[in-house]
Design a protein around this nucleic acid. Structure first.
Lengths: 139, 139
DNA sequence: CTTACTGTAATAATAAATGTTACAGTTCAA
DNA sequence: TTGAACTGTAACATTTATTATTACAGTAAG
């Protein structure tokens, strides 16, 4: 998982809380990163239909979805995140040994299962849930 | 998850299959990496009691545990792996905003839950299971 | 037509993972 | 008792992935 995911969740919680239009600069300030990175992430969140953006002066973005309906799984998907991933495969397909040639695929399967387990967990949490963790005394 | 985990599992399957003593060089060859890396990982697997090593000429290592009793969770623990981790935290504790100061901790909790889900999955797979995937026609 | 934004790409900097080299220590056997 | 073939471990180099920075074209409002 990259920090894009943390940033996206943070951003949505922020936009949900401040209902008015926010600029990428204000969001970046709250998240502690730079506006260009925020805009790149906003663009994916917009494609997924979670937020709406407005260009030009007085532009910015705001939350347009139902916070209780947006799960962290949906966000991770919108970003194309893979919670568990390993770049290097061990062994090599063209080796004349069932272990050396087969372990790469077997481990891929296992990581796939781990990802499914993660997505299942993420599907059980919504932006509304996170908001409630940050503001436990809200009405 | 780093590739150390894939290498460790591959190594244990390899050692389990070849019951005799194997050098780090042979293992490295099968895994497609270098002997020094293998030795570093073997040292952790040894501490966990999965293998025994022998120094000096004619040295090497061999599997000493019951393949059906060694789960992938035990291996991941022995290596100190964290399946899901994000280095950067968003926001900052000293900011005067509940979201900016609180999201870091909330996301840490979530990643912790994902890790638990992964470990649970990993606890359901043993070296014997992996061996059976590689050699489906074994007795 | 100027100001304050978004959208996006190119590039730079930083951090993490992996590979390489080196060498002291161990064991065995000639 | 010396040398060959290993392990164990650390230091360093390289590669790859992630994050930050800069830049600029496009848009909307006044």
């Amino acid at each position: 998982m990259t920090s894009e995911f943390s940033i996206a969740v943070h951003t949505l919680v922020f936009l949900n809380h401040k209902q008015d239009c926010q600029t990428s600069e204000r969001i970046a300030e709250n998240v502690c990163t730079n506006p260009a990175r925020i805009r790149k992430i906003l663009s994916k969140l917009k494609k997924a239909g979670f937020i709406a953006t407005k260009e030009g002066i007085d532009g910015g973005c705001h939350f347009v979805a139902e916070p209780g309906a947006i799960t962290l799984e949906m966000i991770a998907c919108a970003l194309g995140e893979t919670p568990v991933h390993v770049s290097k495969r061990t062994g090599s397909l063209d080796m004349d040994c069932q272990i050396a040639s087969g372990m790469g695929g077997v481990m891929d399967d296992i990581y796939e299962q781990l990802n499914q387990a993660c997505f299942k967990k993420l599907s059980e949490m919504t932006i509304a849930d996170i908001d409630a963790m940050i503001f436990p005394d809200a009405p």
